[in-house]
Every structure is written in C-alpha cells, then in structure tokens.
Design a protein around this nucleic acid. Structure first.
Length: 590
RNA sequence: GCCCGGAUAGCUCAGUUGGUAGAGCAUCCCCUUGGUAAGGGGAAGGUCAUGAAUUCGAAUUUCAUUCCGGGCUCCA
C-alpha cells in the first residue's frame, strides 16, 4: 500500500544515491555470501530509501543480525571508489548475460515485449545488473546509508508467485540527513496510536478478541462525540438513521452476492441446517431490505438511510494493524437511493460534508477516483459516463485528487478519501461508491413520474470510514492531545492544599452542570506532581486552586501547552471554554 | 496466508557461558499541606505468553501454538 512510485524522481541525485546504494547492497551480499546463495530479482529506489528482492538458494537464510556484516562490506565498496558505468546491449546479449537468473529473464521478456532499450550498469569489474538507471558515477558518492529491515514480498506483487526475501534500506546525501530521518521515524513512533491509545486509557485489544478493540471510558467519550457531531450534521441534511440486524441468514447474502464473493471474510454461526447465520460484514444488504419494504415514488428520492451498527469482518492473520485494520468496527455508513439524474448533485452534497468534517479536524486528505476494474459488472457506457461525471465534480470543486486506474469496486466507480498515518503509510478512510448492481440483485423499484417502474442507483458512502480507523488516525494527528471538544477530560481541578477542597468541589459541580468533562485531583500530592500527571494525560486545562483563587472566586489556568494564563474569574473561564467547545475549535483559549 | 523478528511485575526495561528472577514508575499504607512537569518511608506484586522436548536442573536450548511488530497479499 505504501509502495511508492519513485519514477518521478528519476533525475534526482537522491534517487541515484539510493538506487546505487541498492546495487552496492547486492554486490556486498555477493561478496559476503557468494553469488550462488541467491537470485537477484529486483531492487528500486523509493521515496524514503530502497529495497532489494532476492530468492534465497541452497538453504540460504538471512536475518537482521546479518546487517552489520553486510553494511561493513558496503562501506568497503564505497571506499574502493568503484565506477558505475552504463551500457546498452541487445536482447540476445542480455539473455546470454543473465541466462542463469530466471527473474532477470522474466524481466527481459517483458522489456522485449515493450520493445524498450536494454541497459546494464556495471560497478567496477565484479558486479553487473540489468537496470534502467540512472546511477551515481562512483560508489564513493554514497555518503550515508543504512539497512533497515527484512520482509517478504511476492514476485511482481502477486500472491500466486513465489515469496522473495526483501531487504529495506535507506541512503542520504549526508550523514546528518540520515540521522535526521532516523530521528524523525523515532519521533513519529511516539505518536503511534497503538502505544498512545492504551497509555491514555482510550482503548486496548485483548488477545482473546484480536482486532476487536475494547473502548475504555475515555475512548467511548470520543467515539460518542464523533457520532454526535455526525448525527447532528447528517440530520440537517436529510439523512434518516436506522438500526438493522447484526445476524442475518445466509440467504440474505446469497441474494446480495456476498455469500459467493465475500464468505471468507464473514463470521458464520452454524445453528444447524437451514439455519446458518452470518454476522453482518457490511450494511448494504440490510439497507436494500429496508428499501424493499413498501412502494416508492420518484418523489421519495434521494432516500438517505444511515446505519452505524457494528460490523465484523474476518481478516487473515497478519492483516490486522491496531485500530487501522480491525475485525470489529462501525462505519458512519449511509446508503442513498437516487435516480441516475441525481447522482451528480448527490455526490456534490456528500463531498461538501467530507470537506466540512475534515476541516473540523484540521486534516488534509487526498481523493482517489477509482475507475472500472477488470472484473466489473454492468455496461461500459454507464461506467464511462459515471466516471466522467465524478471527475467533473472533483474538478469543479477544486479537490486534490488523482485517478486510480482499475481501482473502482466491481459494481461501480468510487471516490476514496486517503490519509497518512504517523509513519507515512496511506490509509483509506472515507469512500463514496456508486452502485448499479445491488439494487438490481434485490430487484428494487420505484415509480417514475411517467408511471414506469425503474431501478434506483445506490450511493454507498462513509465520511469517517470506520470510526476505529478514524480514531487511530486522530490519535496520531493530535498525538493524543485532542481538541477540547473531543478531550475525554477537558479540565482538571488541582487544589494546592486540602483547605481548598470545598471550593474545588463547588466548581467541580458547577462545571459538570454546564456539561464540561472535569475531574478533581484531591490526592494528597504536591501540586507539581498533580500538574505533571495532568500533563501526561494531555488534559487541555489545569485549574489551579489556592487560597488566592478561593478568595477571588477565580481559577488559575494552566494550559497543556505550558502556558500559564494566571487567575481568571470563574465565570469568564466557563464562558471561554464553552465557546471553544461549541465551535469545535482546534486551539486552546490562548 | 506468506517472509523476518518479538513476548520477563499493571507500565518501561535489566537478567552474564542453562543453577527456579531484579530496578524504576504505577498500586496500597504511613509521614508530608506545598503556587505551575515527579516530597519521603514502608508493604505487596511474576507458573518468565501457552504446550511439549532435551537436561540432574530451562526465563535462558529445540519444536509447536497463540498473540504482537515490520513487510507482502488483501482491505474501511
């Protein structure tokens, strides 16, 4: 998913350095282990480094402990100042040169098919690789490099092919650049939601329920705030919320097609023959079932049915990832039944909602227009028309988008909202999908203005995507320091001595009556210790109460960013915080 | 599912060539009542992920399982 197309960097010095570092890595491995220990498959530069894929031979096995040895050899090659020289050869010469390497031959065949020029790069006298380049001119130009990790990867990214061994590494123009990069990775890891979430009491995942998060009280507050906001904004826009069955007989999924195409992802309860139930993996079939109730007029459309129930999808082991990939989740889902003429207008309305939501969180997103995949359903003309229409809407509304060829769903084109996690990996959150198929499968009908029966089109759409994934992204976005309206605890009252407890309790009650989520720290600890603990919890406001505040009916406000706002009259603080919460401000008072 | 790693107290981590476990923080108790990021003392807390194997003896070696991490594939 995070594989990066580095071709755009072909001319960059950094790209050359990285690609050459990858050649040096391969050369070093040949020296250390011998050429007969692996087939070189391929190795490109990427946006943040490079990788090298190979097939181990003769029981050869490598682990990260071997990196030191390899890196030492790489350093040697660099020190030897070996020239890297390009030359072009014919297909026959190339096939002879790489006759012992099935991967290179495979590669050569596709180059031959495309009728491209064949170039090789030679490092000194000992190493040659089939490569489009470009490279640095001399190994000594590699000033800073490091091997990072070992992974497995399928040849050509295809599950059916053999799994190769991949070594990831990176290289930079200077040593400080490399160190800066490694430092940034370490810093990013500190905001990892898998670490921060449990630390801040937001969620945890127990091994008895893999991929199914427990939302702790603080996490539940946030989820509910997200949903409240969502409900208010959608109610305003004519959405109607529903609640539908968690378990459905398999017959429902036979109708929808999921029993045939999606069964491996469904949790199935076998209660005996003719009584096989499935935990719902998505809401669509239930939405179709609702639409089937009663008779619909064109006047009823668009009909916007939303549903935020829990969904369960069984994922293969190894595919789970914190909150970003789970087995139990809830989508902020809605199915909108429209006529074909209404598609454009409805998409516009949905994109407006997306804009509103993401701006509230201060999150930038990209849109991917997924076009017709190979295994599509329906007719090409309808697809083309829909794709064009979607693209026009993106252009008209000046969205940052790109086209993902063949990335549409099999039932229709889609717009995906994409965001990055703290490690730069890209995740899909929202998605707006057009569906011509499901309404047909369920034989949905409405009566048009001329009295004829027609099948509606369905738009599947989520804005947050899944609340779980969105929460994961949010935790990382804010590094756990949520804007006040989302903060599980918005203020902590910190009395300096026990003699302020009466006043502290009074403002505790008052703030709670006003709907502020506030806690009182009445432990017999030093004020400094209480402040430290509140800081660690990332609570936006600490209200310090000493004798002076009691006498003046005020609170001394310390913000979590370290700012000391001094004594503020209690009513003034209350008004300011309420204002901030109501406007869902991303900032603190000052 | 696949490739490579990992799992020691609630948390963060020590644990030398195999001889049945340690620290800091958190918890509980006592003392301490203080102006913007940790006051002091004491107690309690672990079948070293689980199950086998090797051994006189396993946290430590081997195998399997579960879960976790980095990737691949797949996906919201």
């Amino acid at each position: 998913m995070s594989q990066i197309d580095a071709s755009k960097h072909n001319s960059d010095q950094l790209y050359k350095i990285r690609h050459s570092a990858e050649h040096i890595l391969t050369q070093a491995m040949q020296r250390v282990y011998g050429k007969d220990k692996f087939y070189m498959a391929m190795g490109p530069a990427t946006d943040d480094g490079y990788y090298f894929d190979f097939e181990p031979l003769n029981g050869f096995k490598i682990s990260e402990e071997d990196f030191l040895k390899i890196e030492a050899e790489m350093a040697k090659i660099i020190k030897e100042k070996q020239p890297i020289i390009r030359s072009e050869i014919t297909i026959d010469q190339a096939k002879e040169l790489f006759k012992d390497n099935p991967y290179k031959l495979d590669w050569l065949n596709s180059i031959e098919d495309r009728n491209e020029i064949i170039s090789i790069y030679k490092t000194g006298e000992e190493f040659t690789d089939l490569c489009a380049g470009p490279h640095v001119e001399n190994t000594s130009e590699i000033k800073a490099f490091k091997l990072l990790s070992i992974a497995g990867a399928y040849w050509h990214g295809d599950e059916k092919n053999k799994m190769l061994t991949r070594i990831y590494g990176t290289a930079f123009e200077t040593q400080p650049d490399l160190e800066k990069y490694l430092f940034m990775i370490e810093e990013a890891k500190k905001r990892d939601h898998r670490k921060l979430g449990p630390q801040l009491g937001i969620f945890f995942i127990d091994e008895t329920a893999p991929g199914m998060p427990y939302w702790l009280p603080k996490g539940t507050v946030i989820i509910n705030e997200l949903l409240n906001f969502w409900r208010v904004e959608h109610q305003k826009r004519g959405y109607l919320e529903t609640i539908t069955p968690q378990l459905n007989k398999k017959e429902l999924y036979e109708t929808s097609g999921h029993w045939d195409h999606y069964r491996e992802h469904m949790f199935i309860c076998n209660m005996g023959e003719n009584e096989i139930y499935c935990l719902k993996p998505m809401n669509c079939p239930n939405a179709m079932t609702i639409f089937k109730q009663g008779i619909h007029s064109y006047r009823d459309l668009p009909l916007r049915l939303s549903d935020c129930d829990a969904l369960h999808r069984h994922e293969k082991s190894g595919e789970l990832n914190g909150l970003l990939r789970v087995q139990k989740f809830a989508q902020d889902d809605a199915h909108i039944f429209v006529t074909e003429e209404q598609i454009g207008e409805e998409y516009k309305r949905i994109l407006e909602i997306a804009n509103l939501f993401y701006s509230i969180f201060g999150i930038k997103f990209k849109i991917r227009l997924g076009t017709r995949p190979d295994d599509f359903m329906g007719d090409i003309a309808t697809w083309d028309k829909a794709e064009k229409e979607l693209e026009q809407i993106l252009i008209d509304n000046k969205f940052d988008y790109f086209v993902g060829e063949g990335e549409g769903a099999f039932y229709g084109p889609k717009l995906d909202i994409l965001m990055d996690d703290c490690l730069g990996r890209q995740w899909q959150t929202g998605t707006i999908q057009l569906d011509f198929q499901l309404p047909r499968k369920f034989d949905l009908k409405y009566t048009d203005s001329d009295g004829s029966e027609k099948t509606p089109v369905v738009i599947h759409r989520v804005i947050y995507g899944s609340l779980e994934r969105f929460m994961g992204i949010l935790i990382e976005q804010f590094a756990g320091a949520f804007p006040t309206w989302l903060s599980p605890v918005q203020a902590k009252i910190i009395p300096i001595t026990d003699s302020q407890h009466e006043y502290a309790n009074k403002i505790l009650t008052k703030l709670r009556e006003e709907g502020i989520r506030v806690e009182l720290d009445d432990r017999s600890e030093k004020m400094q210790a209480k402040i430290r603990d509140a800081q660690m919890e990332k609570i936006p406001y600490m209200l310090i109460i000493g004798g002076r505040e009691v006498d003046s009916n005020s609170v001394s406000v310390r913000q979590r960013d370290g700012q000391d706002l001094g004594a503020i009259p209690f009513d003034e603080f209350l008004a300011k915080v309420k204002e901030q919460i109501n406007t869902k401000s991303l900032n603190l008072i000052k």
